[in-house]
């Protein structure tokens, strides 16, 4: 066992990990943050996507021992400070981009990273960008709409600020 320290959603945290402890296990079992989910064991479903140092990664395919000192953002860190839904989360509710909610945290985290890199993606780019996330409920139709809606809101806010 080794002690791993990192910043999760802006807070300094530390916990115990074995060599084989995955980031998702550390989040769920050590830090008791269960918003990040595990839906497969072949690194394909993306229910576990979080951000590490500003990039989306699959937390089920990342050893926590490699992340001592890293900055991690999870779904629990995506709401506004006052507890209201963040822009992408709100877009998911507005566009009915979720049903059972299980894949949703990973979808939100992937889209957040996508829009950081490409603020105004086309529908094809959104669909391509969701290649590492499986949803069994929505047929992706409203997830795509949520991404488009969030992109419009974020770029509108950016323009307003400029």
């Amino acid at each position: 066992m080794a002690t791993i320290s990192m910043t999760v959603n802006g807070k300094q945290v530390s916990g115990e990990a074995q060599g084989n402890t995955l980031l998702v296990e550390f989040l769920r079992e050590e830090l008791k943050m269960t918003g990040t989910h595990v839906g497969c064991d072949t690194s394909q479903c993306g229910a576990c996507v979080v951000h590490v140092n500003g990039e989306s990664v699959k937390s089920c395919t990342t050893f926590v021992s490699a992340l001592d000192g890293a900055e991690v953002t999870t779904i629990e860190g995506m709401a506004n400070d006052d507890g209201t839904l963040g822009v992408i989360q709100q877009a998911f509710q507005d566009e009915h981009g979720l049903q059972c909610g299980f894949c949703t945290p990973g979808m939100v985290m992937t889209i957040a990273d996508m829009l950081n890199n490409n603020p105004q993606p086309t529908e094809a780019e959104i669909r391509e960008g969701l290649k590492g996330n499986i949803c069994r409920c929505t047929g992706y139709h409203n997830i795509v709409k949520a991404a488009q809606s969030a992109a419009a809101t974020l770029s509108g806010a950016k323009q307003a600020a400029e």
Partner: peptide, 21 residues
């Protein structure tokens, strides 16, 4: 009417409570 889903808030904030949680 297309009322927005009230259950969404907990799911979107990572506070759904699934059995494995």
């Amino acid at each position: 009417s297309s009322s927005k889903r009230r259950e969404d808030v907990r799911f979107l904030k990572g506070r759904g409570r699934y059995t494995d949680d």
